[in-house]
């Protein structure tokens, strides 16, 4: 009986496994081969295996490390801002959203816009001659900052990303906040715990797992950012707004340096996998026996 069930499971799982092997496994193997090859658009079907030169080139490229730094800073900062803002709004607006849940649909609107469209929209919004923001700044103050200059671009991008994705963390935190049983709050109140103390000692610990998940998801999304930045300012003056994804894209398509691009993508995969494994190990270690 057990054997039959096992057989059925295998049969049922086969299409998914085949799909994953075809859609993920094949490109992954191809990536690995190309990353150790001399390859161009002309010999895509006939690459020459040439060792680890592409990896050495990537690791010795200052633009690669600059892209790693940009992605890390961008991912950490946007994740922190979105998490903090989402948590604050969820707690602050909870009574209002509880009574009028349709408001959540309005709060979610930035999130449903495609990131590339968001970049395009801000390209217009921030343009000195057609954008509303510089227009009103000139009207009221006679001056408007260069939002997309190399000196301000990073901050502008962080604000845009935060505005778009805070609704996501708001949704997560509101759901988690609403699911805290009221009898816990009432018990705490009976014991004289109120206001900030109630939040920091009772509600926040209950929200901690959501906070870790929200931060983690937003960091991953921020780290691999591509669309909105690329549409808005490309890779920036002197490559100053090159995220790791943009680095890989420009190496592959713009410079036709396919081996180098794929070596960078393999390195990114290895590091991401290592980090995930580390987080998993830490969580497992913390869990009580």
């Amino acid at each position: 009986m057990a054997n039959e069930s096992l057989k059925e499971n295998r049969i049922l799982a086969t299409p998914v496994v085949v799909f994953l092997l075809a859609m993920l496994g094949f490109p992954a193997v191809l990536d690995l081969i190309y990353s150790v090859s001399t390859v161009s658009f002309e010999n895509l079907r006939d690459p020459t295996i040439s060792g680890f030169g592409n990896y050495r080139e990537v690791l010795g490229d200052p633009y690669f490390w600059s892209a790693v730094s940009f992605s890390t800073r961008f991912g950490l900062l946007t994740a922190a801002l979105e998490t903090a803002l989402g948590l604050f709004l969820a707690v602050f607006l909870a009574p209002l959203i509880h009574r009028r849940f349709w408001l959540m649909a309005i709060f979610m609107m930035p999130m449903i816009i495609a990131p590339s469209m968001m970049g395009l929209m801000y390209r217009l919004v921030l343009h000195e001659f057609v954008g509303p923001l510089p227009y009103y700044l000139f009207e009221f103050f006679g001056e408007s900052p260069a939002f997309l200059s190399p000196q301000l671009a990073f901050r502008t991008l962080v604000v845009i990303e935060t505005l778009q994705w805070t609704p996501f963390t708001l949704l997560l935190f509101y759901t988690a906040y609403s699911s805290i049983p009221n009898d816990i709050r009432e018990a705490a109140k009976v014991d004289g715990t109120r206001g900030l103390r109630l939040f920091t000692h009772i509600e926040l610990p209950a929200l901690l797992p959501t906070l870790v998940v929200a931060f983690g998801i937003r960091f991953i999304d921020g780290f691999r950012v591509f669309d909105n930045i690329y549409v808005l300012i490309g890779s920036g003056a002197g490559g100053s707004s090159t995220s790791l994804s943009i680095y890989i894209y420009t190496a592959f398509f713009k410079s036709a340096d396919i081996g180098k691009a794929l070596a960078a993508s393999v390195l990114l995969f290895v590091v991401a996998f290592g980090l995930l494994w580390l987080v998993g190990w830490l969580l497992k270690k913390r869990r009580p026996a």
Partner: peptide, 21 residues
């Protein structure tokens, strides 16, 4: 030239010129 010129390409430049400024 506009301070944001480092993010300007064809359409942005045309919009600037077309504004009369």
């Amino acid at each position: 030239t506009p301070k944001d010129s480092l993010s300007y390409e064809y359409p942005e430049a045309n919009a600037a010129f077309g504004s009369g400024q």
